[in-house]
Design a protein around this nucleic acid. Structure first.
Lengths: 290, 290
DNA sequence: CTCGTATTGCAACAATTGTTTTATAAAGTA
DNA sequence: TACTTTATAAAACAATTGTTGCAATACGAG
């Protein structure tokens, strides 16, 4: 029960009742579990000092259809170790899980991966760069609009430093008219990259503005332009890309920025609250209809 | 980059000068480094959406003899990671983790919790209700705007059944003018609940429309109104609420809806793709400025 | 437009894969 | 001892692998 590894336990449990050659093969697998997924069966057999057929026989002895099941098991172990955290979840009935479950597990893992040190460092560097800017122009087109909107909405609650290039009525980029070297463009774009986004980012660069990017790959066109870039996963078991990790990035950036001066943030939020309350914006229950 | 990964840097460095197919292959390898050693080249190519020969060509482009060199490199990376496991052990325990890490761990857990059976059941019920509607009106104000926008954006790629009540220029609710009992309102609202959202939901109810809600609590005012409701966490270690779980819910709903008729979805997406391509919407690299 | 080049998809290729079969050897039983 | 059962090795097998050559296509320079 030490590893929660069913196959491993099965091998150990039945080891005594195996013929000598199977024992030798089984022992080798126990002692080099990672090799199983990394080399061919024939090579593994050679390293174990047994015949290739012995590996197949071992698989059948353990109740599998063939060697492929053993390899798949060890490959999965490696992949899980990469996620590190996915081990927390009992992915019990494997392929039996529905699409919804699959999507949510995947999302959870993708966001968890954003917490890796390398990623955290990038987040903090980006926050630093944004904090220093006089103004922050936020750009996110098409699917990325929601991320840009979120960032702008939250930062507006904190102050006036942010401007959203939403491109309403074809005004995209008008906001950059008075932008300069002291300002920063926060550009959000994932594959397929909206041409306008790239053009505007390039324009910002030419104006000597700072550029911070939220994008999806080390080879995204934004990487070459940006001073700081944050990478987020976008893959999904559906037809679409996922934007949840990108939104999480935006939320973290907002959190980090607000955290730099907690007192000021708190005050700004109270002011915003007061304002909205004056407008009777919120309600705790279904209002009576007039 | 501090990865100390020569091959990775090589790919990134030469990426720009690769032909499109090679880029696609290279990109897939960058984003799924572990898969390289765990699956066959043909399968990797399939997952990357390229021909098998492209992988060989990529290897030669990078100066190797063949694909085997690429695989060997990634296999070595995995083996190293297994050994150097102890060195990486620095996680958790130290409660000194920064705000960013805290936020991301929390988010990951919140989304993971959405995958619980009770939650999944609600998601599927909601998707079912939405699928049956003649039209779906999407409503999300203030912070929830991004979720509504996402749902509408994605569903619009699939068809014309969705309408977004964005309230631009004070037109909130105008869209419901011709809505009736065969239609459904998808209302997204979290505490503090926007008064307008609740009013509109109530109006929809009075018009005998169906109501599906994405909200944050069993005691949300929307619960009494909605036929189906999905609950998502919103707590965050920051000053703000988080919307990532709500966005995840929207993504799952879109995924489930698209999944009901995969063929139709695929066709619709291809049509959308074609349309956007005709408009030259996307670009793979920084366009030359005129 | 036309040509020359570069890129791509396709199909054939030998090599290698995991498996199965067959024959031999060993071990156990009466 | 002879005979059955079990375990192993070797060889044959179809399937799949990574690679290559070639024809079709897209692309850019003139």
């Amino acid at each position: 029960m030490s590893h929660g590894d069913a196959l491993r336990d099965r091998i150990i449990g039945t080891y005594e009742s195996m013929p000598p050659q199977l024992q030798q093969a089984a022992r080798h697998i126990l002692e080099h579990p990672d090799e199983v997924a990394l080399v061919s069966m024939r090579e593994l057999a050679r390293n174990a000092g047994v015949q290739p057929s012995t590996m197949t026989r071992l698989a059948k002895f353990l109740g599998f259809d063939g060697y492929e099941d053993i390899r798949a098991h060890h490959a999965r172990a490696i992949r899980l170790r990469v996620d590190g955290f996915a081990a927390q979840q009992q992915r019990s009935s494997d392929s039996g899980e529905g699409l919804a479950q699959q999507m949510l597990y995947s999302l959870s893992a993708q966001i968890n991966r954003l917490a890796e040190p390398a990623s955290i460092a990038r987040l903090e560097a980006a926050a630093e760069r944004l904090a220093q800017a006089r103004r922050v122009y936020v750009l996110g087109l098409r699917s990325c609009h929601l991320v840009a909107w979120h960032f702008h909405y939250v930062m507006r609650l904190l102050g006036e430093r942010t401007e959203h290039l939403d491109g309403l009525a074809g005004t995209i980029g008008d906001g950059l008219m008075r932008a300069g070297a002291e300002d920063v463009l926060l550009a959000i774009s994932i594959s397929p990259y909206a041409r306008h986004s790239l053009e505007l980012a390039q324009l910002a660069r030419e104006k000597n503005m700072g550029v911070v990017a939220i994008t999806d790959s080390e080879v995204s066109p934004l990487i070459g332009i940006a001073d700081e870039a944050i990478l987020c996963a976008t893959e999904s078991p559906t037809f679409f890309h996922t934007l949840s990790p990108a939104l999480a990035v935006s939320e973290v950036l907002c959190g980090l920025l607000a955290n730099r001066d907690r007192a000021a943030a708190l005050e700004a939020l109270q002011k915003a609250d007061q304002h909205l309350q004056g407008l009777n914006t919120y309600s705790g229950a279904i209002p009576k209809r007039q």
